[in-house]
């Protein structure tokens, strides 16, 4: 076991949220790597906070219809389709 602030169970939970299956070895390895990533981000804590006004506000477009893709184009990247729909695995 490492002394990473992230333990393998947490990695497993995150993987579950992303619907990714990990091996036991990967869980251990990623726990260490997650720890490293988090500590890298800790560097940001050193940066002084500033109040910056956002440059942009109220970026909107009028409610006007623009052409959509046609069905064949919309489905072009899909590995599998059926009846004009994207086809994927069961998602319970």
């Amino acid at each position: 076991m490492s002394d990473s602030p992230v333990d393998p169970d947490e990695v497993e939970h995150i993987a579950g949220l992303a619907r990714v299956e990990l091996s036991a070895e990967e869980r251990e390895r990623f726990a260490d790597q997650f720890g490293e990533i988090l500590s890298a981000f800790e560097a940001l804590d050193e940066v002084p906070e500033t109040d910056s006004e956002p440059e942009l506000t109220n970026v909107m477009r009028p409610d006007e219809v623009r052409d959509s893709l046609d069905q064949a184009e919309a489905l072009r990247n899909a590995e599998e389709t059926e009846d004009g729909k994207f086809k994927g695995p069961r998602v319970s």
Partner: peptide, 26 residues
């Protein structure tokens, strides 16, 4: 509304699936 919240695709019900889409809502 006439169009979707983040793109100009129509919100009218369509007879065929995936005919009211664009790179944003896909």
């Amino acid at each position: 509304t006439e169009t979707k919240i983040f793109c100009g695709c129509s919100t009218e019900p369509a007879a065929e699936p995936n005919t009211r889409t664009c790179p944003v809502c896909l």
